[in-house]
Amino acid sequence: MSVPESSEPRAARRAIPVWFIILLFLLLYWGMVYFDLRSGWFNERVYAPFHNLEQVASFQPISGEGEFVMKGKQLYSLNCAVCHMETGTGNPGNGCPPLAGSEWVSAAGPGRIIRIVSKGATGPIEVAGKVYNTGTMLAIGDQLPGDEPQKAESIAAIISYIRKTFGNNASAVTPEQVSKVRDQIKDRKTYFSPEELKAAPEAP
């Protein structure tokens, strides 16, 4: 059958099928749900492969003893290392005793070291077989920033750090232990003398 030359192809009008419109809306709905669940809503802290902020938060490494000791290391650098040095060797020229190998630091019970860090110490003190008598340690613990629970936590972190580094190998100290000791000495205004410290209980 031949087609007349004059006939142009013509498109007839036809309504869009209903199923196609429904399919479009379903696709749109699926797309929106997918976006909602996986986009993180453009939060700048959500990157692939994470889908949303809750998921990122759930994958945070759980803080353990290691992190606590790391915090202590930072606080030590800020507050203690001026005199005791980053390496814990102390500064004999200033009368500042070492922390490395110090029996005051690595005692089985941390009661005395908590007292020293909290309220300071002065007077001739024997550390690792040598007497240091010209130095005075300030009440660093009381001067740390924050309220009392924060101070206790910071002090516990510092003491845990110095008990676990510089060749020392003693147990970590918990904020609860520090709070307990600090509660007993909270009204004290003066530095400890070594005799008083020796009289104090070693266990917190």
């Binding site: 700048e44 802290r45 990157y47 990122v56 994958f59 945070q60 490494p61 000791v69 790391m70």
Partner: peptide, 11 residues
């Protein structure tokens, strides 16, 4: 390790 890229590193 960052919050937005969590990973555990040996302490």
């Amino acid at each position: 390790p960052l919050f937005s890229a969590p990973v555990t590193v040996a302490s």
